[in-house]
Simulated assay, not measured.
Amino acid sequence: MFGYLQIEKEELLVKEFETYKAVYCGLCKQMGKDYSFLTRLTLSYDCTFYAMLLMSLHSSCGGFKKGRCTCNPLKRCNFAYSKNDDYQKAAAFSIITVYYKLIDDINDSGFFKSLFSRMIKPFFSHQRKKAKKRYPWIDEYVAEMMERQAVIEQDKSASVDISADPTAQMLGKILAKDGNDETESRVLYEYGYNIGRWIYLMDAADDIEKDAKSLSFNPFIQEDGLTLDNNIISLTLNQCLARAYDAYNLLDINGFKGILDNMMLRGFPKIQNKITDKTQKDSDKSFESQKGSKDE
Rank of each mutant, 00 (worst) to 15 (best):
A244I: 08
I162Y: 09
D229K: 13
S157H: 01
K210F: 11
D261Q: 07
Y248H: 08
Q149V: 11
V142E: 00
V142H: 04
A212R: 12
L260S: 04
V187N: 14
Y191R: 01
S214M: 02
I208S: 06
L241R: 00
L228W: 12
Q154V: 03
T236Q: 08
Y193V: 14
K270L: 10
I221S: 11
A204S: 04
I195M: 07
M145F: 09
L241D: 04
D207M: 00
R186T: 08
E147F: 10
L188D: 00
I221D: 06
L251Y: 04
S216Q: 09
Y193K: 07
E184T: 03
D206R: 12
V160W: 01
Y200S: 03
A205E: 05
I208Y: 09
N238P: 05
D181L: 01
K213M: 04
L201T: 02
K177E: 07
V187I: 14
D207L: 04
F268H: 07
I259D: 03
Q272V: 09
R266F: 15
Y193H: 08
R243W: 15
I221F: 12
D165N: 09
Y189C: 15
E184C: 02
N273A: 10
V142W: 03
D181M: 10
D246N: 03
G258T: 01
K210Y: 13
I208M: 08
E223N: 11
K210L: 12
E147T: 10
R266H: 15
Q154P: 00
L260H: 01
D178K: 15
A247Q: 09
G196T: 11
A150Y: 14
L171A: 08
P219E: 04
K156Y: 02
I232F: 13
V187K: 02
K156M: 00
T227K: 04
A204G: 00
L237S: 12
A158G: 01
E223H: 13
M202Y: 05
L171W: 01
T167I: 06
L171Q: 03
Y245M: 12
R186H: 04
T183C: 02
T236R: 11
A164H: 00
I174L: 02
M263S: 09
Q222M: 10
I271S: 04
D161V: 14
D261V: 03
N218Q: 09
I232N: 10
N254S: 03
A143H: 12
I233A: 12
M146K: 02
D206I: 06
M264N: 05
L237T: 14
Y245E: 13
I199F: 06
S216V: 09
N230E: 11
W198L: 03
I232K: 15
F256I: 14
N230P: 14
E147A: 05
A176C: 08
N231M: 12
L188V: 05
D229R: 13
D224M: 07
A143K: 11
K156V: 11
K177S: 08
A143Y: 07
K173I: 00
Q149N: 09
Y245R: 12
I233M: 13
